[in-house]
Nucleic acid binder design. Structure first.
Lengths: 147, 147
DNA sequence: ATATCCACTTGCAAAATGAAAGAGGATTTG
DNA sequence: CAAATCCTCTTTCATTTTGCAAGTGGATAT
């Protein structure tokens, strides 16, 4: 019934994680930023899930306050805003990819190729590095146009 | 701006995961079952987070329908009910442990020892096997008392 | 036989969400 | 230069979800 001494501290780390992941929209915004290269308000707003604009504003503020997103005006166009993933958000990638692997196993309607789960299992660091590079590339493409 | 060909299918696996993890209470019930050895309605109800009873009933039904929990009457006492984690739920462990590692990195008030993150990083399979064994132990302790 | 335990259900007030319209500044267009 | 448009939000209001408290009904303990 009681799993040994672990009981004392197990609760907390998941509770902290639940504070951010335990919300559908935060979860999907993180996906947008980490995996889909979305950065601007309208990018998020036009995602196929159809978040409504007041909720989006609310969640972006929450994620910014949690230091997951870094809000900056877009150097390409000052009326636009970009939300960049912080290191704290990037470090969510392993968990996010693990969840994706799980989904590909149990969602019979998954769009992900079987090779994805296999690749992540065989060499997670390689997969991880690839995604980090993609994030760098997207950010650099935006910020690089500043000068 | 557009991360190559990945865009087509990336959305889906995370959306599927968001359907279950993107809810604070489902998330915490899974933690209870997978990490804290909780199995009965009152176990969940008495967790320190304080879920209210109607929400708990609703989420247990949802998780049962999603085939994450297996509802059975308790062999120790027929008026009691046990919710056992299915294989599908157990397979969430890698993602859950990854999230815990992330939490220990960024939650300055974490109760988890630093050794946890280190242990999981150095040998995830060992950590994973340990948790699976704990789950087996809890389940066997309940079901074993049947005969 | 009565009280208690246990897994829920119900009713209701408060909070969160979703849809739609609008505000206000920057940018493009004519 | 003026008008229209783009873009990030804000506001309003109806609907849905949540949380709290009390209640139900069957099994179990006394």
């Amino acid at each position: 019934m009681k799993p040994a001494q672990i009981t004392q501290w197990y609760g907390c780390p998941t509770r902290y994680a639940a504070g951010i992941f335990g919300d559908k929209w935060c979860f999907l915004i993180l996906r947008d930023v980490l995996l889909l290269g979305r950065r601007t308000y309208s990018d998020f707003l036009n995602a196929p899930e159809g978040i409504s604009t007041n909720i989006l504003a609310n969640r972006l503020a929450k994620l910014e306050e949690a230091k997951m997103l870094d809000r900056q005006t877009d150097p390409r166009k000052a009326s636009r805003v970009c939300y960049f993933p912080t290191r704290k958000a990037r470090d969510v990638l392993p968990a996010l990819l693990s969840m994706m692997v799980w989904s590909t196993l149990y969602d019979e309607g998954t769009e992900a190729p079987a090779s994805f789960a296999e690749a992540y299992r065989s060499d997670p660091n390689k997969t991880l590095a690839w995604y980090e590079a993609e994030i760098d590339r997207v950010d650099a493409e935006i910020l690089g146009s500043a000068r």
